[in-house]
Simulated assay, not measured.
Amino acid sequence: MPTPNPQAFDFLSTRRSRPAKTLTTPVPTAEELTPLLQAAARTPDHGKLEPWRFIVIEKAAMARLADIAEARGKQLGLAEEQVDKGRGQFDQGHLAVAVIEVQKPSEKIPPLEQTYSAGAVCLALLNAALTSGWGANWLSGWPSHDRGFMQEALGLDNHERIAGLIHIGTETSTPPDRPRPDLDSITTWMPE
């Protein structure tokens, strides 16, 4: 008979990200952030490849990343609102962790499974922050998918990419819940 953990199940059943634009200071110190990173690093990792790593982006670095996002957006010819949105997540940020997917050669572990693991790290870090009382939000946006931004802003190699930017801080307001999927419409039961 399984031993339930009602508190953990309640958290998972009611968890809600906090919009990054509503997060403020204080943010976790290095000592407070380290256990969150350790919890995220316990993510399932087929083959023990560790196909991910972390870059902690502190407030002082946010301004530099905002400038790079703006310059890249203009270089790419993006609409002004897209440029502003790409810049804004760094202008408004106080602390974020970039989860970097690191594709590693493997005969047994396909690249897609490594991508799944990096995504799982993002969710694990988000949930670790939320369970610790912080507000947190997983963002991406066009800068996260732009190779030029990845290289200039974060120094990523060609076999690396941003899986997500996890913004962490003090929440200023609790957002209302949003509509959730209709379980019956997304679930198929196979009795035989």
Rank of each mutant, 00 (worst) to 15 (best):
P4D: 04
P4E: 07
P6W: 00
F11G: 09
F11V: 14
T14I: 08
R16S: 01
R16F: 04
S17D: 03
R18W: 00
K21Y: 05
T22I: 09
T25I: 01
P26M: 10
T29H: 00
A30G: 01
E31L: 12
E32P: 14
E32T: 06
Q38K: 11
Q38Y: 00
A39F: 08
D45W: 04
G47D: 04
K48M: 05
E50K: 13
W52D: 04
W52G: 05
W52N: 04
F54C: 08
I57W: 03
I57F: 08
E58P: 04
A63R: 06
A66E: 09
A66C: 09
A69G: 12
A71T: 11
G73V: 03
L76M: 13
G77R: 13
L78A: 10
E80I: 12
V83T: 10
V83E: 07
V83G: 06
K85E: 13
K85P: 12
G86H: 03
G93K: 04
H94N: 10
L95T: 02
A96L: 10
V97A: 00
V97N: 03
V99R: 00
I100D: 01
E101L: 15
E101R: 15
V102R: 15
Q103F: 09
P105R: 09
E107N: 09
K108S: 12
K108P: 06
K108V: 10
I109K: 03
I109G: 06
P110L: 07
P111M: 12
Q114V: 10
Q114T: 05
Q114I: 07
Y116K: 14
S117P: 00
A118T: 14
A120G: 13
L123K: 10
A124L: 11
A124I: 12
L125R: 03
L126A: 11
N127G: 09
N127L: 03
T131K: 02
T131R: 03
G133E: 08
W134E: 03
G135R: 05
A136R: 07
W138T: 01
W138Q: 00
L139C: 09
S140M: 14
S140T: 11
P143T: 02
P143Y: 08
H145E: 08
D146H: 07
G148K: 08
E152Q: 15
A153V: 01
G155K: 14
L156N: 04
D157R: 15
E160Q: 15
R161G: 07
I162A: 00
A163F: 00
G164M: 00
L165N: 13
H167E: 00
E171S: 14
T172C: 08
T172P: 12
T174H: 09
T174Q: 05
T174L: 06
T174Y: 05
P175T: 02
P175D: 02
P175G: 05
R178T: 15
P179D: 13
D182E: 13
L183Q: 07
D184H: 13
S185V: 13
I186D: 03
I186V: 05
T187Y: 11
T188K: 10
P191C: 02
E192W: 13
E192K: 15
